[in-house]
Every structure is written in structure tokens, then in C-alpha cells.
Design a protein around this nucleic acid. Structure first.
Length: 217
DNA sequence: AGTGCGATTGACT
DNA sequence: GTCAATCGCACTA
């Protein structure tokens, strides 16, 4: 539980070690601003390192939950559950939605300020066979299309809440050498409050993006 | 202590 | 397209 929250000097970690050809993202490269971070994370690579091996995928869809957003979990202040949202940028906030699916978020804003970015979908890259086993699904397109599916594919749950994504470890973020993708914008998915804000970002035309057609144009 | 309700998914009509 | 599953949290009393 709560990997990397208390004991580690988490806001000053040295980043950027390379592993398996990926180059880790330094915390200094992450925008403090939640919406900017949501855009920045598009096209980055999430790397999950386990005893089974390495799983990875390219981020193709995110949603921002900025300061003052009534739909955000930090809206009513800090609690035991949402503590990780109040860490400095680049920490994992993982929670269980609907009692059914884990959601992987990246903390944003300065330490002490609660906000974050939900990662909603990945294009699977490495460890596809393991992801297929984790998800009990064969179809590549369905492996990590949706926030709960993504977490299941990567074997992410509350154990990784608070993990520092800017350090090599069980879960971290890397650059993608590919050219920057074209990013689309839409309203967020599955909300009743703040439903009209266009805080969802995705790679245009990417088949691993979740959500209805109407939101993916 | 009890209730309502999700940042979803998978099964089914 | 509809809908139940399932559980932790926030809120009321």
C-alpha cells in the first residue's frame, strides 16, 4: 500500500534512467497544470514492471480532473482514499470504481493541491500475452480500451496507489520516440456533474481510444 | 448504522 | 440498445 508516499523524497526524484530502450520521464518535464498534463500524457508510454515481465502501452486517451472540479475526487478535500492526488505531479492515484474496476490516475499540481489525470486507454505494446491472460480476452483492441480494462491488463490496483511514476519501479512513464500525435478534445465520459467541460483528450483516429463515435471525431 | 451513488464493465434483448 | 453486479466512500441521523 502507498508505495512511495512517505519515506521517499518523492518530489525531487532523479528520473530519466533508461530501461529496455525506454527513457523515463523526469518530473520536471511534467506540467503542473492538470489540463496541460492531460495533454502531455497523450502519446507517452506507461510501463508496468512485474515478476512476470514488462507490460507497456501507449497512452491514447486521458481526462483532466482539475482543481475546483466537482467531479474530481479531491473536490471535498483530502481523505485516506485520495491522498495520492495531493502529492506532487507524477504519482499514481488508483481507486476502485463501481466496486468493479480500478482507475489509474496521475497526480498533478503542486504538492498539497489535489488534482489529477485519468488514463482512459492504452495501445498495447509489450507483454501482450500477459495482458491477454490478465484480462481473459484475446482481442488486442479490447485489452486496454477503457480505464478499468487498462488497469486490469497491467495488473494495477490499490497496491500501486501513491507509486512514483517518475522513477524506475513497478510502474513508470516513458517517452515515445514517435512523432507527436494529433490530439482531439471532447467532454468527459460517464459523469453527471461538470458533464459539459471538454477535458477529455485522445489521439485522433486511434483505434484503441474508448468512448462513443460521437466523442471521437 | 443506514443509505445513495458513482471517473465501469460484461452479458444480454 | 438495456441492465445488473459490486463495494468503498460521503453523507444523514
Amino acid at each position: 500500500m502507498n508505495v512511495g508516499t512517505d519515506a521517499q523524497p518523492s518530489c525531487r526524484s532523479k528520473p530519466a534512467a533508461a530501461d529496455r530502450g525506454y527513457e523515463g520521464l523526469a518530473r520536471s518535464e511534467l506540467p503542473l497544470d492538470t489540463v496541460e498534463l492531460a495533454r502531455c500524457l497523450i502519446g507517452k508510454i506507461v510501463v508496468r514492471s512485474t515478476s512476470e515481465g514488462v507490460l507497456s502501452g501507449r497512452v491514447v486517451e486521458t481526462e483532466a480532473y482539475p482543481v475546483g472540479d466537482a467531479a474530481g475526487h479531491a473536490y471535498r478535500g483530502e481523505t485516506a482514499r485520495n491522498h495520492a492526488l495531493f502529492l506532487c505531479p507524477g504519482h499514481a492515484y488508483v481507486y476502485l470504481a463501481y466496486g468493479v474496476a480500478y482507475m489509474l490516475n496521475v497526480s498533478s499540481e503542486a504538492a498539497g493541491v489535489g488534482a489529477g489525470v485519468l488514463i482512459r486507454a492504452l495501445e498495447p505494446l509489450e507483454g501482450i500475452a500477459t495482458m491477454q491472460r490478465n484480462r481473459r480476452v484475446e482481442n488486442l483492441r479490447d485489452l486496454a480500451r477503457g480505464p478499468g480494462r487498462l488497469a486490469a491488463a497491467l495488473d494495477v490496483d490499490r497496491r500501486l496507489d501513491g507509486a512514483d511514476l517518475c522513477r524506475l519501479g513497478p510502474l513508470w512513464i516513458a517517452r515515445d520516440p514517435r512523432e507527436a500525435p494529433e490530439i482531439g478534445t471532447s467532454t468527459r465520459i460517464g459523469l453527471s456533474r461538470e458533464a459539459d467541460r471538454r477535458l477529455r483528450f485522445y489521439i485522433r483516429g486511434n483505434r484503441f481510444v474508448s468512448g462513443p463515435k460521437a466523442l471521437n471525431s
